[in-house]
């Protein structure tokens, strides 16, 4: 794994994200119950459980609210949508908490969760994934492990992943923390 973030509660409703020893971002709760993610370089994102007119479990939309380099990403652009543990990035589907291909499913019942890239996934849009497929993601689908999550938020939630997810690294780390590790 080449990118390693630690997301941790650092006080009342305050969360920091570190990369190594360096603090790279923090997360704050807003009055409208969205979360603001602010990076040290000036980038800001809004994380919201509501998107597409609904709120769903294990789902999150992250949009850029302030861009460090407006040529790179425009403010208001949605940079990540997680729906029922699934997200699409650079035309590839990823499953948060999937079973790596070739590994015993029993190994992933507790402890570390894997981010699995679902190669050959028979859909091209997140909104096209049907109920039957979503309901069998854990039992039937396997993927290539490209990242992993581990740890309770209070102690530090670790998110490690390969380069292919680096450009959404901070929003992904913040989302995983909020969806899977807070107590």
């Amino acid at each position: 794994m080449v990118v390693d973030f630690v997301v941790q509660e650092s006080g009342k409703l305050r969360i920091t994200i570190r990369k190594g020893d360096e603090k790279v971002a923090d997360i704050r709760l807003r009055k409208d119950f969205t979360y603001g993610l602010t990076a040290s370089n000036g980038n800001e994102w809004t994380l919201s459980a509501r998107f597409g007119g609904e709120i769903r479990p294990f789902s999150m939309a992250v949009s850029q609210s302030k861009a460090h380099d407006a040529h790179d990403v425009t403010s208001g652009t949605t940079v990540l949508v997680i729906k029922d543990h699934l997200f699409l990035h650079n035309e590839k589907f990823y499953l948060l908490g999937g079973t790596p291909e070739g590994r015993p499913p029993k190994e992933v019942l507790v402890g570390r969760r894997y981010i699995c890239r679902l190669d050959n996934f028979p859909f091209s849009e997140l909104s096209d994934v049907d109920y039957e497929t979503r309901s069998k993601l854990i039992s039937k689908f396997r993927g290539a492990p490209v990242g992993e999550l581990d740890g309770l938020g209070k102690e530090g939630h670790h998110l490690r992943f390969f380069n292919e997810l680096e450009d959404i690294g901070l929003p992904l780390a913040a989302s995983c923390y909020l969806l899977y590790s807070t107590a």
Partner: peptide, 18 residues
């Protein structure tokens, strides 16, 4: 429960057994 349901989601999985 451990296969994608409540016990699978329980944050105690990060500290031992859900």
């Amino acid at each position: 429960q451990l296969q994608g349901l409540c016990e699978s989601a329980c944050v105690m999985r990060w500290q031992g057994q859900p």
